[in-house]
Design a binder for these strands. Structure first.
Lengths: 138, 138
DNA sequence: ATCTTTTATGCAACATTGTTGCGTTTATGT
DNA sequence: ACATAAACGCAACAATGTTGCATAAAAGAT
């Protein structure tokens, strides 16, 4: 399904920047930091970029994969709806190249703590990504 | 051990703000967001607060428990050294009161993904804290 | 296709967070 | 008490994120 129809299905108007954001995140295998998005979308106003990200997050089309050192990394959602966000996947950040990606592995972490109700659990793994590992071999 | 000796043991000079930060975090059962620290430490310059946090993090005395919505939450480390940071505990954020705390439960999450090397795993749980649960009962 | 209404955009202004350079002050060992 | 190395306060700056408002664009109806 193309970006325009994805937007319509969530009750969002089809605008250039929304399509551009979805396509930018869709093309990338990785989550994109805000700075990268701003560079790619420099023809749009910064305010508009922020509002676009908020709108897409609100409708469950994208999510913040990671927030670190004041950088937010955004990625497409795989199976969120407007009302329900499912993010039971793992986020991975490479310590060498700082790339962030969503690992779609099912990882159920059972946690139960007395006197506390746990609704969701986020897992962030850090290490070395495949492309950085490859460059080590040379 | 008091704050002054903790600082000396890590090769840090004992200054008012470092003691104040350690005591503020030590007194609180929760991780403190930067904004709260700034309020508590308003007698010090903002720059100094930032540099203090960096110095204490560098020596493994405190850590960022969570970074969310551009707020960093800081907490004391339990068993980090200058060289080695152990953060294999769980961070918990209450969705209602936004409080953040470190849960010192041992939770080993085994994750292995082909072509990727994983060094560390961070777990953040979200839900309702005990004090918010109590207020629901009334 | 044009009109109308609702929504989104761009711009300006502002708030907050975080960093850097530099002169002054403070902590520590002698 | 003194010397020196480190930390502090201040000013300036950069980046991120938000808000209000006038203008422009999208979507459905005519």
């Amino acid at each position: 399904m193309d970006a325009a129809n994805i937007l319509k299905n969530r009750g969002l108007r089809v605008t250039k920047i929304r399509v551009a954001v979805l396509e930018a995140l869709g093309k990338s295998q990785q989550a994109l930091p805000y700075g990268d998005l701003q560079k790619k979308l420099s023809r749009f106003d910064r305010t508009t970029i922020y509002r676009t990200l908020l709108a897409l997050m609100d409708k469950g089309l994208i999510h913040k994969a990671l927030e670190e050192n004041n950088e937010s990394y955004y990625a497409l959602c795989s199976d969120c709806t407007s009302n329900l966000h499912h993010h039971n996947h793992v986020h991975f950040k490479c310590n060498e190249c700082s790339s962030v990606q969503c690992l779609y592995i099912s990882k159920e972490v059972g946690l139960s703590i007395p006197e506390i109700v746990i609704d969701s659990i986020e897992i962030t793994a850090k290490g070395t990504c495949s492309s950085c590992l490859l460059t080590h071999l040379t």
